[in-house]
Design a protein around this nucleic acid. Sequence first.
DNA 1: TCTGGGGTCCTAGGACCC
DNA 2: TCTGGGGTCCTAGGACCC
Length: 425
Amino acid sequence: MGTVFALADCNNFYASCERVFDPSLAGRPIVVLSNNDGCIIARSAEAKALGIGMGLPFFQYEKALLRHGVAVFSSNYALYGDMSARVMSTLGRFTPNLETYSIDEAFLDLSGLPGDLTAYAARIRETVLRWTGIPVSIGLGPTKTLAKLANRLAKDAPGHNGVLDLTGPRDREAFLARVAVGDIWGIGRRHAARLDRYGVRTALQFSRLSRDFVQKHLTVTGLHTLLELQGVPCIDLETAPTPKKSIISSRSFGRPVTTGTDMREAVAWHITRATEKLRRQKSLAGTILVSMQTNRFLTGEPQHEASDSLTLPMPSAYTPELLAAGLSLADRLIRPGYRYKKVGVMLLGLEAEDTVQGSLLAPPEADSSRRRALMDGIDRINAKWGRETVRPAATGLARPWGMRQARRSPRYTTCWAELPLVRAG
DNA sequence: TCTGGGGTCCTAGGACCC
DNA sequence: TCTGGGGTCCTAGGACCC
């Protein structure tokens, strides 16, 4: 018996989360918007059936959506993140070997399981649905790529009840023939277009290409995809979360920003947020990068896009130090007279806080333990009393650059004041 | 007025070394 | 016209994922 991977993927996850706490949404088309209520990033099955595309700018379709009775939500990541954790912990009851692949997907290693795999997967589905209210589909395969493909078929192909098994070679070719090459995990738009020029349109055709051809055109990652489709595992299950190698905080503004003060506040806010993430994974950053841009869709307006980075003398997770570095970069980049749309901060050159290299030139800071205690104290207060209970003054108070979120549902599961209310009688 | 955010990996080419 | 050979490291850009 070989390896068996399952991919469990929540159906229309964000839309499903909204539905769990609002039964009146059953059967209704739902869309969820990106940050700032910009684009449509999630759709319920009913919304997809109406032909509402992914990534469409909301403001262009707002009237049509409301006319069709579509329920529209701002994204509510407090809710989605918490529901995701519930789904993952439920899945964890069925195997200790689980990789949380994204907010709504997990790979499970089901190798060596006795009995009927399809029935086992069906039981996983039922349990997740009963315990969390979230519907999932499950694909089974001897490699992650085939499990992904099986999952897609489980969702799209009727008559499979949300579970599809591609672990055996039986019927595999027939299923591969039904999947477009661009729908293979790891084959994106560009590669799909390139393959199309060679007449390669289905997963089956792709799986029959020579290794040399694939490596030449799609590099080694493409070669791994090829082998995985042929049933040869190349991509392992990663059960332990690995620390990030870079951390980003960036966001569009709710409205154009024109003053240096607002720009600096926004940059400081992102630095603070990125540095919190950095400390949470117990890392230090060697380099900070600040970027900003105007609204590229407004072709009539003057455009400015700029970014620059600065490498610290010693890697750090001390917010005031990163604020000083990042704001000095911002001051060099910001140009008066532009209407900015977005700023971002990236932390690079990350290393674990306990393995950092010392420097011959800069002796260890006498107050480094004091700095660490200060950050630790602030992080604890904010964990207990809520984000931004204690925050740098540089991040401002009024936040005129903050994002729009006109249609957010309550944070049903993470906020006492927003718990769902049930009336009896 | 309005168009998302956050990541990873690979390769080519330049800088630099002996 | 010709002007070595081989290696490492870093970065930018491109591709992919959700």
